[in-house]
Design a protein around this nucleic acid. Structure first.
Lengths: 227, 227
DNA sequence: GCTCTGAATTCTGTATGCAATTTGGTTTTC
DNA sequence: GAAAACCAAATTGCATACAGAATTCAGAGC
């Protein structure tokens, strides 16, 4: 740790050993997204706290944060429950995500630097490689990352914020939503169109592709919701 | 309170006496919005806790919730600081709000019930009355409420969520942004157009008005930000 | 056998206590 | 006189403690 003290005083990033409630937050969120805590489950503070080896205090703080993110619901005197989303709610979320990404697409074509676009191209190529090797998990992660990056290109913090929030709520659902081979192929095709439109800074075309891509995203997941 | 127990078992709203951290949350948020806690201020848990007459535990929980809402920033080992927004951030937020309200406008014209529209008309008339009496505070509150209701007409929970979040972040800024007489008059004029387009279910016109209204909203507040 | 009742248990909500880090001011040093 | 070093007070972060509400389960009554 001595090296940190040696750095010049105005260093951009500090050491910041993350606090416990922050670590718990990440872990809890992952548990919800990956399905360890299924929707409708009550979060037992004692049990989770024991499992994590922490007291209930920072755990409760993390839960409050998750509540504001919309991943859990706070029920008075009954603690927190993992939020269950109806098919309509998922559709509505995708609707908003689509609107946000379309908006981002327009801004991105206007302000994105070549380096930033090249960064997304790199991720895209990686993703296509993952697709060709049938690595769904890697594909999924890169896919998410590409959409996040596209929004970040717009250089609008508020836009990134709300997009990330909805993306987080949807992660669990889209994570489960494994599409069949031919649907998967089409999704990849749309992504190819996206990156091409972006590289050409063709806003109209990019908006169009994003629109189609997210409209289909709903079709891809909706079947897994009708239980 | 006995009447509650007598209600049939599946009653829509329970008694729900709100918990302390929830009450604190509302109070803290109001303090930030109304300027009692100015941007950049560190939130001293001991002091605020004493002022509210509560311990630090529920207070800290409320702070975590506010952090996720984006009203405060969590600095490791140094607590929470009231978030300071740059002019660009405000502009970006208004940009997203505009996009969201335009989207809401389209949906609203398609699915809104006559009663819901009538409800907004009532608020609108009240707001105009407040304007004519020069009651800026009442006007401001009704104005906010109308925009919230318009978004709610779209019947999209995610849309309402993210809109409310940005609206909350902007409240303090727009609260301060007192416009001059003629700008105020124009804002009211835009609102008249909005309610008329809505009552006519004229989506194109409504989108257009909303677009102009929120573009001007930026012009109305931007001067107060260049300090 | 089923429902209702009530005590025992579990769990949440809040307060308090303690260790570790930060902060502000004073002294020391060059 | 300015900067570095240090010490004391204040403050955050987390754990523990305790009261009150909710849940569970056993037994009584029908």
């Amino acid at each position: 740790m001595a090296s940190a003290a040696d750095l010049p005083s105005g260093t951009p990033h500090r050491i910041e050993r993350q606090s416990l409630h922050e670590a718990i937050l990440t872990r809890l969120r992952d548990m919800i997204i990956e399905g360890d805590l299924t929707p409708g489950t009550r979060i037992n503070e004692g049990a989770i706290g024991a499992q994590f080896g922490v007291s209930r205090t920072p755990l409760r703080e993390a839960i409050k944060y998750l509540a504001s993110e919309g991943l859990v619901e706070l029920v008075p005197s009954r603690g927190a429950v993992v939020k269950k989303f109806t098919a309509k709610e998922v559709r509505d979320m995708l609707d908003v995500v689509r609107t946000l990404e379309e908006h981002a697409a327009v801004s991105a074509c206007a302000v994105a630097t070549d380096e930033a676009v090249a960064g997304i191209r790199a991720l895209h190529d990686e993703m296509v490689a993952a697709y060709e090797h049938g690595e769904r998990r890697t594909y999924y992660k890169l896919n998410q990352e590409i959409h996040t990056r596209l929004v970040e290109l717009a250089d609008n913090a508020a836009l990134s914020d709300v997009h990330a929030m909805l993306q987080t709520r949807l992660k669990r659902i889209r994570y489960v939503g494994h599409e069949g081979e031919e649907k998967w192929a089409k999704a990849v095709g749309e992504h190819v169109e996206m990156i091409e439109a972006l590289e050409a800074r063709d806003a109209d075309r990019l908006v169009d592709v994003v629109h189609r891509h997210l409209t289909k995203a709903w079709e891809r997941v909706k079947d897994s919701l009708e239980t």
